[in-house]
Nucleic acid binder design. Sequence first.
DNA 1: CTAACGTACAACCAAATGGTTGTAGATGAT
DNA 2: ATCATCTACAACCATTTGGTTGTACGTTAG
Lengths: 104, 104
Amino acid sequence: MDRIFRALADATRRDILRRTLSGEASVSQLAAAYDMSFAAVQKHVAVLEGAGLVTKHPQGRERVVRGNPETIERAKSLLDRYEQIWRARIDRLDALLADTTERQ
Amino acid sequence: MDRIFRALADATRRDILRRTLSGEASVSQLAAAYDMSFAAVQKHVAVLEGAGLVTKHPQGRERVVRGNPETIERAKSLLDRYEQIWRARIDRLDALLADTTERQ
DNA sequence: CTAACGTACAACCAAATGGTTGTAGATGAT
DNA sequence: ATCATCTACAACCATTTGGTTGTACGTTAG
C-alpha cells in the first residue's frame, strides 16, 4: 500500500497512469510528453511499475507500458474500508442518541 | 491530490486515520499507541491535517483529532475516474472488434 | 554494416521525509 | 501557586526522492 499511494502522490506519475490506462504507450512516447529528461520519466514509470500500477511489455526495442486497473481497485477498496469505519461510528452515535431520546 | 496520496503513503498515518475515523482521539492518545516520539506522531498528524484527511479541534489543553471522510471520498473519486478511463478504452476495443467481426 | 533509436543503469546533486532531542507556552489538577 | 500534562516548534540527522548527465547495450532502419 505504501508504494501504491506513494506512486500516486505525484502529478507526473498520475498523468502517466492516466495515459497508459487510456491506451498503451512506449516509455519514449511518454517521455516526449513531459518537460523532463527521458531518464526521469523512466524512473517515474519504474515507481509505477514497482507499485503494480503499470506493467511493461517488451515489443521489439520498445517497452510498452500498460496501466493496471486491479491495483487501482486495491487502493480504492482500502479507502472504502475507511469510509465504512467512519459510517460505523456515525451509526453507533445515532444508536446512542436514539437510546438516550427513548429513555427521556 | 499530491498531499492526500502522500499522506496515505505511510502505514502509521493510515493507522492514525483509521483510529480517528472510528473515534476522536487526542494527539497524546495517538502518540501512546506508537513506538515513536510524541513529536514524530505530531508530525504525522500535521501531514494528515495538511492533506485535509484529518481536522484538529482544541478542547481544553488537548487537540482532538477527527478523521475527515470527505477527503477520502475525493481520493476515491479520482481512482474511480481512472477506472472509468480504462473501461472506456476496453469498450473502444470491444467496439472495434465487433466492427471487424461484422465485416467478415 | 553502420547509424539511429529505445532502453537501462550508474553516479551525482538538491530538496523533502521521517525520525530524534530539546525548549517553551497553555491548560488542568492538587 | 505549583506541578504535571498536552501541545507546538526549532534544530539537527540519515535516508529517500526527483531530477540531472553520461555511458552502454540491444534492436531496427537505411
